[in-house]
Every structure is written in structure tokens, then in C-alpha cells.
Design a protein around this nucleic acid. Structure first.
Length: 485
RNA sequence: GGCCCCAUGGUCAAGCGGUUAAGACUCAGGCCUCUCACGCCUGCUACAGGGGUUCGAAUCCCCUUGGGGUCACCA
């Protein structure tokens, strides 16, 4: 039988990192097994509809390369793929369940339920629906429905016994029936709850492997009772442990660390994010860490999935993002970096190819690019103490004569390529009998006014150009003169 | 709280009864070097605790502790 997996998010307006990882694993499993990956939108909660939310899901999946074979926007032979468009179906199946005795009508009002709940709370017990409406006769039910009383359909769960199933990751899971509630299957608005919809759709859509979050681990027996009542074959279950922010909190929207988009905005490359989350909760058979999607699909296996929650480590993501950035072809890096350069400098005034070459190995996230370039656009009013460098044994005093000589050389030079500058300045150091660093450190400070720059004196000088270099040299020399005196 | 599940360094993790308990990130030190970074090398840090089973336990069992999940007309 052909493997079919699905990703079934609720349209909340953003794609949670944990959700993305679930989608990734479902996608990988399908691809690895030459199967199909389906996208289904679970929008049965009318209260939480967010306009445009589906588009976020479609576009994120496409941007990350998690292509689906069937889905709302591309169709497929098991459509529609949006649950609200399948309303009639669920109603029909819910009624079949009632006919089979596996479900029943419930007319209990919110008030009665609330009263029951608070009584329970006072008594210190856990609330569970009391099957009150199960006792209704056919006639009573008919009368209520004819009278237009709103109703829901509840699952009729046995009071005794237990229900078990085997999860591919966690093994055998057994839950006492008495712990399960007669959940609502069909709401009074005619739409199904997840309890019904996931079962009906997974079956109708021929899903063979249900890959989803661990929050469903202990409610899965209930769904299996439904499969059984329908006479359907249950799928293989694969529950995934959660992605955490720290030991006790999940990644949350509030903390700005929950959605894929948040990380893209923070300057992470899409490929790096996907690669990182693939490793959060799953490990490959070997020690590799850098994978393309295709590479992952080749080695992905359920046996590598771990059982315990994984804490999202942004430090490691940063490192991985750096790896991806460094691996980019130079032109490609320049292209993605350019908008970030533009935040700090006038990109038409500078040699952006050279800048790109300099910052590529120094960039971990795209967003730290502007900060590295500010000194190019505006010469900072720096502290003269910057001329002091312990290892180089330079001081503001020793810098002055060095700068005077360097300025002469710099003024005499026509070509300002890094190579020419290099070839002119190094001999000067030799001639002066000082170390390269003792010459180049003061020069770099004098023209950048910045302790740490992406590149050395010759490279910075090249970027700045002769005119600006000489201007900055003069200004620095003047300030030094005034201070040293 | 009931029920279900989990437990190797700060983090991700390998390990499937016999290992000097991998690797990666972080951190520290060093090399390289025109600053920083990159790269390269070295180092610090772990089997939650207690009982069993076994010739032998990180690996199997039990308890404790800690953590997660779940108990909605949400998914």
C-alpha cells in the first residue's frame, strides 16, 4: 500500500516551528517511502478563523520546499481539503455512529454543563460528562429535535475496560476507558470537532501514517474506538515530542520565537531553519549535521526520532546559519546580503562585492550585517584609546609618527585595490623596522574609528577610497596631535 | 489531582547487557593573522537518586524525584 502522510494545521495566521517540524517529518516520511504528502486545513473552529491564514501555510510550505501532492490550493482526488467545505460529510458519518450506538444526541445546555463542572470542582473531582442524554428515548429525542432544540452528538465511550494501540515511537499505549470522556463529535453548529474530523478525513483521504504532535498521544484510543465503530482500519500512529523554549515552556508566539516567519525576519536562512529543526527530535544514522532536504529524505527514518521534548537552542541555529551563509556562492551571498547592507550604507557608493567577500565569513545572521558597516558611511567620533593595543604594543603616542608616514604612502598611491594597498603598506612597515601590526592597527583605527571591523586596514582603505581615507587620516592625526601634546 | 508518556554534559544527541560513554553547539586555551571572524588543534562538562535482575547495567525491572502531555461545542 502506498504511504500517504498529511500535515493538518489549523489556520492560525502563522506557522509554528513545532508545526513546521511536524510537517517536515511527515513530508520526509512520505518522500523517503515514495509516498504522497497531503495538506489539509482544519478550520472547524468558527471562533478562531483568521483571514488569510491559509496563504501563510501554503507559502511557507512552498518556500521551505515541503511540496505537497494534494491540497486546498492545488486540488487532488480526495478533496475538498478544507474541513469547513466538508461539513455535510461529517454530519452524515456522525449520524451513522448514532445509528450504530457508538454515539448519541445530547441536548444538555451550557448551563447544566457548567453547573456539573462547578459541583465537581467543589467536590474535588475531575469533571466528566455524566451520559445524561444517553438515557433519552427515541421519542424524546425526536420531539426535542422537532422542537428545534440545539444538540450535539457525543461519542459513547464504554465505562469499563481499556483501549490500547501501538505508536511507532512510544510503543504500546493503554488508556482505561473510564478515563475517557464522551467527547463531542458534532457541534451544535453542525461542524465536527477534531475528534470526529480527523478520523473521518484520515480514513477518507487514505492516510496510512498519522504523524502529529504528542498532545494526541493519550486521546488516540478514543479515535480508535471510532475507527472500530466505523469498521475502518486504523492508521499507523507516529506521535512527536514537543519543541520547547526551555525545560518547562513550549515555544510561544508571545516570545517571538514561535513562528517560522519570526526566524526569517531575524535573519536566518530558510534552509538553515529547516535543517536545524530536522535535527531537533531526530538524529541521522551517522554524525552528519548539514543536510539538504533531499539529503534528509534519503536517510530519514522513524527510528531516529526521540521520545523526549527537545529544547530549541538558538545558539546552535546561529552556528548552523553561519555554516549555510559561508557555503553560499559569493554572488549569491552578495545578493541576499545587499538589502541588509543598504540599511547601513549607500550601496551605490561602495564596492559591494568586496564588502560581501569580507562579511561573508563574519556573518551568522543576516541582521547583523548593518551594524558591521555603519563606520563606512559615517566616521565615528571614536575614543583615541583605541590606538592602544596590548599585543601590538601600540599606544596613541606611538601611533602618531606611524600615521604620518602611512599618510604619505597612502597619498602617493593611485590605485586603491586591497592588493596595491597591501603591497605598499607592508614594505613601509619593514622600512620603519616595525611589525606589520604596529603599522596596520593604527591605520585601521585611524580610518575606521572602530575597534572591530570586517577586514583589515588595507581592505577598509580600499572600500573607503583614497579621498575618504586621506580625509579620515588627517582628522585622526589632528586629534592625536592635540591629545598627545 | 487522575490518566498517559519521558529521563545520557548547559543544549541537541549516539549508545540497544561487556565502550577509555561518540559527535555537534556553547564555553575556555592555543595556532593562523593587518583587528575581529573564518579555519585548524586542545580542553572542561553527563548516564537524576535508590533498590533489584545479572558474572557484568547508561542499557532490563521496581520505587522515588524531576519534566512533558491530557482532562473544552480548541485543535
Amino acid at each position: 500500500m502506498k504511504v500517504r502522510t498529511r500535515f493538518a494545521p489549523s489556520p492560525t495566521g502563522y506557522l509554528h516551528i513545532g508545526g513546521l517540524r511536524t510537517a517536515l517529518y511527515a513530508w520526509l516520511y512520505a518522500r523517503k517511502n515514495n509516498g504522497e504528502f497531503i495538506l489539509r486545513i482544519e478550520d472547524t473552529d468558527q471562533q478562531r478563523l483568521v483571514p488569510g491564514a491559509c496563504d501563510v501555510i501554503y507559502s511557507t510550505l512552498k518556500e521551505t520546499g515541503l511540496t505537497y501532492d494534494e491540497g486546498p490550493d492545488i486540488g487532488g482526488k480526495f478533496g475538498p481539503y478544507i474541513q469547513s467545505e466538508r461539513k455535510g460529510l461529517y454530519r452524515e458519518y456522525a449520524h451513522n455512529l448514532v445509528a450504530a450506538g457508538a454515539a448519541y444526541y445530547c441536548f444538555c445546555t451550557k448551563e447544566r454543563l457548567d453547573a456539573l463542572r462547578s459541583d465537581c470542582e467543589q467536590a474535588g473531582c475531575v469533571f466528566k460528562y455524566d451520559k445524561h442524554c444517553l438515557a433519552l428515548t427515541k421519542e424524546e429525542i425526536r420531539a426535542k429535535i422537532d422542537a428545534g432544540e440545539p444538540y450535539v452528538i457525543r461519542q459513547n465511550i464504554p465505562l469499563e475496560g481499556e483501549t490500547a494501540y501501538t505508536d511507532a515511537i512510544f510503543g504500546e499505549i493503554t488508556v482505561p476507558n473510564s478515563d475517557m470522556e464522551d467527547n463531542i463529535l458534532l457541534k451544535s453548529d453542525g461542524l465536527p470537532t477534531y475528534n470526529l474530523a480527523n478520523v473521518v478525513d484520515d480514513h477518507l483521504m487514505d492516510i496510512t501514517h498519522v504523524i502529529r504532535g504528542i498532545e494526541y498521544l493519550s486521546s488516540t484510543p478514543k479515535y480508535n474506538l471510532l475507527y472500530k465503530a466505523f469498521g475502518w482500519e486504523v492508521p499507523q500512529y507516529i506521535h512527536l515530542p514537543p519543541v520547547m523554549r526551555d525545560q518547562q515552556h513550549k515555544l510561544s508566539k508571545r516570545h517571538g520565537d514561535a513562528s517560522f516567519e519570526d526566524f526569517v525576519q531575524k535573519g536566518y536562512l530558510k534552509e538553515a531553519i529547516v535543517n536545524y529543526i530536522a535535527l531537533l527530535g531526530w538524529s541521522p544514522p551517522d554524525n552528519r549535521e548539514i543536510f539538504t532536504l533531499a539529503g534528509l529524505a534519503e536517510v530519514f527514518s522513524l527510528s531516529g526520532i526521540s521520545k523526549s521534548p527537545a529544547i530549541f537552542d538558538e545558539d546552535k541555529l546561529k552556528w548552523m546559519n553561519g555554516e549555510y551563509i559561508r557555503a553560499l556562492p559569493p554572488e549569491e551571498f552578495e545578493r541576499v546580503a545587499r538589502p541588509y547592507m543598504a540599511q547601513a550604507i549607500d550601496v551605490d557608493k561602495f564596492d559591494t562585492a568586496l564588502i560581501a567577500r569580507l562579511i561573508q565569513p563574519r556573518t551568522e545572521v543576516l541582521t547583523d550585517i548593518p551594524g558591521k558597516l555603519e563606520f563606512l558611511e559615517a566616521f565615528p567620533k571614536y575614543d583615541l584609546a583605541l590606538f592602544a593595543h596590548k599585543k601590538m604594543k601600540t599606544t596613541p603616542e606611538s601611533a602618531l609618527p606611524v600615521l604620518l608616514r602611512a599618510k604619505e604612502t597612502l597619498a602617493a598611491l593611485g590605485d586603491y585595490s586591497p592588493e596595491t594597498l597591501h603591497d605598499a603598506l607592508l614594505p613601509l612597515a619593514a622600512e620603519m623596522g616595525i611589525k606589520n601590526g604596529q603599522l596596520l592597527w593604527p591605520v585601521r583605527i585611524a580610518i575606521s574609528g572602530t575597534a572591530v571591523t570586517p577586514g583589515g586596514a588595507t581592505e577598509i582603505a580600499s572600500l573607503l577610497g583614497k579621498q575618504e581615507v586621506l580625509r579620515r587620516m588627517e582628522e585622526s592625526i589632528a586629534r592625536l596631535r592635540a591629545a598627545v601634546q
